[in-house]
């Protein structure tokens, strides 16, 4: 239990610094700190697959974010939004906070998951018959590629779409730069 509290407090402190600091590069590095703390947390929560994926994705995400923020001139923006926007924001945050408080009463306490109390739940079936039905010793792999492979197909589609979107957004700039030597 101790390590969970420590790592979560580390993540929260890093998030607070990332939100409140003025320098964008410091904020990006604090996001990296949240990601690596979260990766350690996944490892302590007995999820090594997620830990590996998180730590690698975090490195690439840091490369993307630093590339976006470095060598930009104006990285200091002071002040918040105007009055009306601030009021609306506070109302939205308060409503979501209330909804979260209501939800807290329904979830079970930490360490005693729901699927352990239901005999024939889906997760229980995956654990007990996953090796027998798919032959994969890694039950996470058997879930994402055999029991729930539709999720993976949808994930591939979403990734493909986001790549196409990024390419289309950045394309015109590249083309204009390419045509400059001819002019």
């Amino acid at each position: 239990m101790f390590e969970f509290y420590t790592l979560l407090l580390f993540c929260i402190i890093a998030a607070f610094i990332a939100v409140e600091t003025r320098n964008l590069l410091s904020a990006v590095i604090c996001v990296g700190a949240i990601g690596f703390g979260g990766s350690l947390l996944f490892l302590f929560l007995r999820a090594p697959d997620i830990a590996i994926t998180q730590i690698v994705v975090e490195v690439l995400g840091l490369v993307i974010l630093i590339r976006a923020t470095i060598s930009r001139d104006i990285t200091f923006i002071s002040g918040d939004r105007e009055f009306f926007g601030t009021v609306v924001s506070v109302v939205i945050i308060f409503v979501i906070f209330l909804a979260g408080i209501i939800v807290f009463k329904t979830i079970p306490p930490f360490g005693t998951p729901v699927f352990a109390q239901v005999p024939d739940s889906a997760s229980q079936t995956y654990i007990s018959t996953g090796l027998e039905k798919t032959g994969a010793a890694n039950l996470v792999a058997s879930v994402i590629l055999d029991f729930r492979a539709y999720d993976t197909l949808g994930e591939a589609t979403v990734l493909f779409t986001s790549i196409i979107g990024a390419t289309v957004i950045l394309r015109r700039r590249a083309k204009k730069k390419l045509e400059e030597p001819d002019a």
């Binding site: 090594p48 697959d49 830990a51 590996i52 994926t53 690698v56 994705v57 690439l60 032959g135 994969a136 010793a137 890694n138 996470v140 792999a141 058997s142 994402i144 590629l145």
Partner: peptide
């Protein structure tokens, strides 16, 4: 990836 931690996602990102 089917017997140790890892898999296509993590390996692809690496």
């Amino acid at each position: 990836g089917h017997r140790t931690p890892g898999g296509g996602f993590a390996g692809g990102v690496i």
